[in-house]
Design a protein around this nucleic acid. Structure first.
Length: 589
RNA sequence: GCGGGCGUAGCUCAAUGGUAGAGUUCCAGUCUUCCAAACUGGCCACGCGGGUUCGAUUCCCGCCGCCCGCUCCA
């Protein structure tokens, strides 16, 4: 699993990130803080580029997606409706003997006789330990085995010649307090709340408790009706949002991969329930083959929409320089799916520390909007004129068939979330009647990506080393960050060939002044030309131009031209200064 | 949260119970005709806090952080 070589690569990447100003540890001068990372000058540009590309791909270049920018702290009821208050708060217990960790509520219940000990004493040194311990034995097993386990426990605490103290027994029925594997007592269940808590208002009282959002998505659901009414969009359409989210991870690991403060890029794409599609178009289209299904059609059911977004997202990754060979698709198995999800595809990237998730594309049915409808008491349904018109033209058999299926789907949701049977049936019936009038709660496809993970993937993918040997036989290794020009932090480096020739310097500065209004450009006249190229290679700058004597007209036919040097192969070509901006724009867009 | 390893310039690595040294990077300068050239000068470090000691970067303890494993990952 953890080849030393992969570790070394990760260490090099972390080191380069710091050296070149991509990523620093947060609060480093105070010793750092676990799970928090800052982006330096190059990292900030890289991240901005990635977010802007996502934003324009997902919203500006599409007719059917609009944006939202919601607050990080929202009404705490949102997190009850979404389920985060419950599922983010798992009680945990550790085995006192082996330190193995358990979800307290998922420990297999056991019965038998518990042997309690108040402590132990070393019969030779006289040293005493007063930690309490207990072992559960199945009924009928000899007490000796409990004493043996307890002896191990006290040996770990530094005693050698164990004399157990205060043994007493107790009958235990269906207890979850003992390790099923060895009978050892577990620690008291301790809550692990993964949501960061804070207080709104000056008084830190229970009433003021609020949470930093653990995902950006819920705001989209909470604002769904407002966006629908003000954006002139109709289902199917999407709402996109990027922003910070916070999770108090048990173990932040792998550099920035699992951070406690991180940024997400999420789309909630709302679609009609399959029953509505069927009524309107006569039948529901389902996936025919793997790969991109093409431009959306009115008869697409949720499965085609899901496949469409998986392929759109992979296309996006390819477009910013993550080849398909570095990615993996993982279709979650039915038993792995969250209870509300119908399907979920993870897009994974082959990180040096393992193949890990970049983005999840979940088909979440109408779960989220339904939850907010129940918890807020506000309708999350939409009215669909097309559906009402089409419904009127159906024959009675079809009406009753579709109606029944919609009723069953709604009933299934309502009973699953714990609505009492009689009320669930009544509500599901109302929902089915609503469908006949053109009303439904939209279903949703959710492509949800982690910005920081993507940055790390781009950095890992770009990292490459070039070893060259000079004529003295001394070899050295240089790092080249092969970012796609679209995401590269600096697009162009501009150098005067010589620093001490004022006219060359002035010309280079002139080019810099003109290009920097259009793209991230960097002027450098420090050190030898080769050193400047090497510095830009480490920053991942795809192109560098150099102003030389020919630019100034030493060879008249080359007047006002510059050399442009390619990062990945060192190749150079000559271009008129006037064409430079256009040449670059064509490559960084 | 548990167990193991680690913590010296930005980076790579030394030495030491008695005021920390090199290479490289970086900055300034001389010199320059396209891939980390040379020379000169300069900046910069014992993670933090206790303890032992006349004196601690070195020994001990605690904390913090990083790496690995366990656990967790809606």
């Amino acid at each position: 699993m953890s080849e030393p070589k992969e570790n070394v690569l990760m260490e090099k990447i972390v080191s380069l990130c710091k050296r070149r100003g991509f990523v620093y540890q947060s609060s480093e001068i105070y010793g750092g803080i676990q799970g928090f990372w800052d982006y330096g000058p190059l990292g900030a540009e890289l991240k901005r580029n990635v977010k802007e590309l996502w934003w324009s791909t997902m919203t500006r270049l599409r007719d059917d997606v609009v944006g939202l920018e919601a607050t990080i702290i929202m009404a705490p009821q949102i997190w009850r409706a979404s389920g985060h208050v419950d599922t983010f708060c798992d009680p945990m217990s550790d085995c006192l003997l082996t330190k193995k960790r358990f979800r307290s509520d998922q420990v297999e219940a056991q019965s038998g006789v518990a042997y309690h000990y108040a402590g132990a004493r070393d019969s030779v040194s006289g040293k005493q330990v007063t930690d309490a311990f207990a072992v559960l034995l199945p009924a009928g097993k000899p007490p000796e085995s409990a004493r043996k386990t307890a002896t191990q426990f006290y040996q770990q605490r530094g005693l050698e010649n164990i004399e157990l103290l205060g043994e007493r027994t107790e009958k235990v029925e269906n207890s979850q307090r003992f390790n099923p594997e060895n009978g050892s007592l577990l620690t008291e269940p301790r809550p692990f709340n993964l949501m960061f808590k804070t207080y709104v208002g000056p008084v830190e009282s229970e009433d003021g408790i609020a949470y930093l959002r653990p995902e950006t998505a819920q705001a989209i659901f909470a604002q769904f009706k407002n966006v629908l009414e003000t954006s002139r969009q109709k289902v199917p359409f999407g709402i996109a949002q990027t922003g910070k989210a916070f999770r108090n991870e048990v173990t932040p690991r792998n550099f920035t991969f699992r951070s406690r403060e991180f940024e997400q890029m999420e789309l909630e794409f709302f679609i009609k329930p399959d029953e509505a599609v069927e009524v309107i178009t006569g039948s529901v289209a389902t996936p025919k083959r793997a790969g991109h299904p093409g431009e959306p059609e009115a008869n697409w059911g949720w499965q085609l929409w899901h496949q469409y977004w998986v392929e759109e997202r992979i296309k996006f990754y390819e477009g910013i320089g993550l080849p398909r060979t570095t990615l993996e698709e993982y279709w979650q198995k039915p038993e792995e799916l969250a209870h509300y999800a119908r399907a979920c595809v993870d897009i994974l990237f082959k990180f040096p520390f393992g193949t890990q998730e970049l983005e999840g594309i979940a088909a979440r049915s109408d779960f989220d909007l339904s939850q907010h409808e129940r918890f807020s008491g506000k309708s999350m349904g939409v009215f669909d004129e097309e559906l009402r018109t089409a419904w009127a033209k159906l024959d009675d058999a079809k009406k009753s068939d579709v109606s029944k299926r919609y009723y069953e789907a709604r009933l299934k949701y309502l009973t699953k979330v714990g609505v009492e049977q009689a009320k669930a049936e009544k509500d599901a019936k109302e929902d089915a009647e609503g469908l006949a009038k053109g009303q439904y709660i939209p279903h949703v496809i959710e492509p949800s990506a982690g910005v920081d993970r993507l940055i790390l993937a781009l950095v890992a993918n770009a990292y490459s080393e070039v070893t060259s040997t000079d004529d003295k036989g001394k070899s050295e290794t240089r790092v080249v960050m092969k970012f796609h020009p679209r995401v590269a932090p600096i697009k162009i480096g501009i150098f005067p060939l010589l620093k001490n020739k004022p006219e060359i310097v002035a010309k280079a500065k002139e080019i810099f002044a003109s290009l920097r209004t259009q793209m991230m450009a960097f002027y450098d006249d420090g050190g030898a030309i080769g050193r400047r190229y090497a510095r830009q290679d480490e920053a991942g700058t795809p192109y560098c131009v150099t102003v030389d004597f020919d630019t100034m007209g030493e060879k008249p036919e080359l007047l006002n031209t510059v050399t442009i040097r390619h990062r990945d192969d060192g190749r150079q070509e000559r271009l008129p200064i006037a064409e430079l901006a256009g040449w670059l724009q064509a490559r960084i867009r």
